[in-house]
């Protein structure tokens, strides 16, 4: 496949996948695996798993980060830009249009009622996500993590401490514990 054709394939693949993927980042990663590993054979399944882990440990949207890795793996920097563009274009266009129309429709009675009902639904969906994730981390039985979870909730929800501060503080606590463990294991190995 020539360079230009490869970039075009990359762009159209990501555009299609991104346009029709509802649901979280892992859904889109699954579709990317089917396209780039099974159909195009551009990378192995193992490489796809590794880049998913990288996309997950990086900040931001998993789908965009995974697209950046797939693109750069397939065609270097031009590939990275092409894949990311294909991934973000559909939501940018769609949400910009919806945002403009939303103002005009919001005050119509049926739309207002529909949105009001859906607000109740979306609160339930987010709480369900939190419950599911909470269940998973509780099973890890990490006492420091659990204490931090309670603290973060109290500080954020009840005392209104900024989310940025809370995330940076949690990262600092995790980093300190990691460094302490590293130190211990080095001493133990001597």
């Amino acid at each position: 496949m020539t360079g230009k054709k490869r970039l075009w394939t990359l762009f159209t693949s990501m555009l299609t996948i991104s346009s029709f993927t509802f649901g979280g980042g892992f859904v889109i990663v699954g579709l990317m695996k089917r396209r780039f590993v099974d159909e195009l054979g551009w990378m192995t399944e193992e490489e796809m798993l590794d880049l998913t882990a990288m996309a997950q440990s990086s900040p931001g949207a998993i789908a965009v980060n995974a697209a950046a890795r797939v693109g750069s793996r397939a065609a270097g920097w031009p590939g990275l830009l092409t894949a990311v563009l294909g991934t973000v274009l559909p939501p940018i266009v769609l949400l910009s249009l919806l945002s403009l129309c939303y103002g005009a429709f919001r005050d119509l009675r049926p739309v207002r009622l529909l949105l009001a009902g859906m607000q109740a639904g979306v609160a339930a969906v987010i709480l369900d996500v939190a419950w599911g994730l909470g269940d998973k981390v509780l099973r890890g039985r990490d006492p420091l993590g659990l204490a931090l979870m309670v603290l973060v909730f109290a500080a954020g929800h009840l005392c209104g401490v900024s989310t940025v501060v809370l995330i940076l503080a949690a990262a600092a606590v995790g980093l300190c514990r990691g460094l302490a463990r590293l130190h211990k294991s080095k001493e133990g190995g001597r």
């Binding site: 440990s57 607000q119 979306v122 609160a123 339930a124 987010i126 709480l127 996500v129 939190a130 419950w131 994730l133 909470g134 981390v137 890890g140 990490d142 420091l144 993590g145 659990l146 931090l148 979870m149 309670v150 973060v152 909730f153 954020g156 929800h157 989310t163 809370l166 995330i167 949690a170 990262a171 606590v173 995790g174 980093l175 514990r177 990691g178 460094l179 463990r181 590293l182 294991s185």
Partner: peptide, 26 residues
């Protein structure tokens, strides 16, 4: 251990923040 521990702790904090946002929506 450093990356592992940092991500592990962050995961707990993030769950708390998502729960708090969900309650806000409620």
């Amino acid at each position: 251990p450093v990356l592992h521990s940092t991500l592990g702790i962050l995961r707990h904090a993030v769950v708390a923040l998502i729960a708090s946002a969900g309650l806000g929506l409620l």
